[in-house]
């Protein structure tokens, strides 16, 4: 459901048209998330698989006594799974869906720095010619070293909990 809820997924540029983001790598791509969402960056933790959960949210970790899910955004962007490296980190963010605030850890291959993106350099995702689901991408921002992807986390999680395309419901593993 692209643009089903534009207000929720709109990018919050500030008055000067800037946005502070944390940039990180998944495979060859550079992604960015609003710095205000980020709570913590962690080394990899021992993960516990949750049987029956969607592969994209297939495990949980103990984050300071709380059980938080770990999201593998590679799966949302059709990238092959990869081994963890020395650079792998978990970015813990706090976000909100349907009025509930919750924390979630995002597995990344490498975390870069906090950067400032400019609205002038941003574009809506193209309607054609993209390998990814269009509604999973909010903006593409050009930079000197390439393109930064601003993913639409709300849309991605919505597709898991509410959408019919939830990858593996609990019942499908039972037969």
């Amino acid at each position: 459901m692209p643009q089903a809820n534009p207000a929720q997924s709109a990018t919050q540029w500030d008055a000067e048209g800037h946005l502070e983001v944390l940039t990180f790598n998944l495979g060859e791509e550079t992604f960015a998330l609003e710095a205000t969402l980020v709570r913590e960056i962690l080394d990899l933790l021992p993960e516990t698989r949750v049987p029956g959960a969607a592969p994209l949210l297939g495990s949980v970790v103990n984050f300071r006594g709380k059980i938080i899910p770990i999201a593998d955004l590679r799966l949302a962007f059709a990238m092959p799974a990869a081994e963890a490296t020395l650079d792998s980190r978990i970015v813990v963010i706090e976000t909100e869906t349907e009025g509930e605030t919750f924390q979630i850890g995002i597995r990344t291959d490498k975390v870069h720095e906090v950067a400032t993106l400019s609205r002038d350099a941003s574009e809506e995702p193209p309607a054609v010619g993209m390998r990814w689901r269009r509604d999973f991408v909010r903006e593409l921002v050009r930079r000197d070293d390439g393109v930064v992807v601003l993913p639409d986390l709300a849309a991605i999680f919505r597709s898991l909990t509410g959408g019919a395309d939830a990858a593996a419901g609990p019942s499908s593993t039972l037969h």
Partner: peptide, 24 residues
């Protein structure tokens, strides 16, 4: 400990707990 709202559709689990070694 309760499960994340994102895992609410996983009906087989009522919650989670933290073990002595910090694992879940």
């Amino acid at each position: 400990k309760s499960m994340s709202p994102l895992h609410r559709d996983v009906a087989t689990f009522a919650g989670a707990t933290i073990l002595g070694d910090g694992g879940v």
